[in-house]
């Protein structure tokens, strides 16, 4: 049971990590906490659903197109809703993300409000039984994709000039534009990337969670808990945080009480904020006075 719970926790945690990764990438690039990221997750899944069931595309082209659509949606949000706010306080920007989150959810409800829709699995292989421990190809795919993207983003932010420019642009947008960096284009692109990443998570997870307009709301809380535990703005921290929450949820549900599974994320947020506000991998900010 222990090994099975750990494996299941890794699979669940990978979902949280993948969502947290998109939020962290955007946070690092723009310093905006995006409360609408759950709707990128939901949007990706629903766009794919439309591609398959309405347009009639096969899964893979449909998924690629859904990611492109969501990338454009992300860029549009930055151009139409975020950029006009200029250097507004963080709380105002966060409220804007809350607003478009509810707007997107409302639009989805208008079309699919009464339905909980199924999504075909990416692979339909039967579960693999290794000495009594069950592994599914869908779980392996999600975990693999999470690892792939964390490595990709790590290389981008830490090892490429573009990544260093990205960090400079987020730390000092005015300075960055003075040295010729197109900060607006960069921010728009990062919103697109975040939305695309949210869409990838939604596409991978929808066969497991089923599709409904509110599917992004709960996952957002888990992703916040992962970011808080790992340290806000730390890519590796978001992934480790997500995996830890997934594993601890499963172990607490399996050995203590199933009632703990759903409140675990909130307990983590409270405990981390009280004991180590910077999270596991965050750097404590100090201000000289």
């Amino acid at each position: 049971m222990f090994v099975q719970l750990i494996l299941s926790g890794v699979a669940q945690g990978s979902i949280y990590a993948l969502v947290a990764l998109g939020m962290t990438a955007l946070f690092r690039a723009t310093t905006i906490v995006n409360f609408g990221h759950g709707e990128f997750f939901m949007g990706g899944a629903f766009v794919l659903y439309v591609m398959i069931n309405v347009v009639g595309l096969p899964f893979l082209p449909g998924a690629l197109l859904a990611i492109v659509v969501m990338f454009l949606v992300g860029m549009t949000i930055e151009r139409v809703l975020i950029r006009p706010m200029g250097l507004a306080p963080h709380i105002a920007l966060a409220m804007m993300t809350v607003a478009f989150s509810f707007l997107f959810r409302g639009i989805a409800r208008a079309f699919w409000g009464r339905e909980v829709l199924p999504m075909p699995a990416v692979f339909s292989f039967p579960p693999i039984d290794v000495a009594g421990v069950i592994i599914t190809t869908q779980d392996l795919l999600i975990t693999g994709m999470t690892l792939f993207f964390v490595v990709l983003f790590f290389i981008f932010f830490q090892r490429t000039n573009l990544g260093r420019i990205a960090q400079a642009a987020s730390a000092n947008p005015r300075g960055a534009s003075l040295v010729g960096i197109n900060v607006n284009l960069f921010h728009g692109t990062m919103w697109g990337v975040a939305a695309g990443l949210g869409a990838i998570a939604g596409i991978l997870v929808a066969p497991i969670t089923l599709l409904y307009p509110d599917m992004g709301a709960l996952i957002l809380i888990k992703a916040f808990a992962a970011m808080t535990l790992g340290g806000f703005g730390n890519l590796g921290g978001a992934v480790v945080g997500g995996l830890l929450i997934g594993i601890l949820e499963q172990l607490s549900g399996g050995y203590l009480s199933t009632a703990l599974i759903d409140i675990f994320a909130y307990l983590v947020i409270i405990a981390v904020l009280l004991i180590r506000p910077a999270g596991l991998f965050g750097i404590r900010e100090s201000q000289r006075v």
């Binding site: 699979a11 669940q12 997870v205 549900g253 199933t258 009632a259 759903d262």
Partner: peptide, 17 residues
């Protein structure tokens, strides 16, 4: 006598128990 909350995406602990 177990719980599984709304919005859950996994039932592994419940099934194993």
């Amino acid at each position: 006598d177990l719980t599984m909350e709304r919005g859950s995406s996994d039932a592994t602990p419940q099934i194993l128990k």
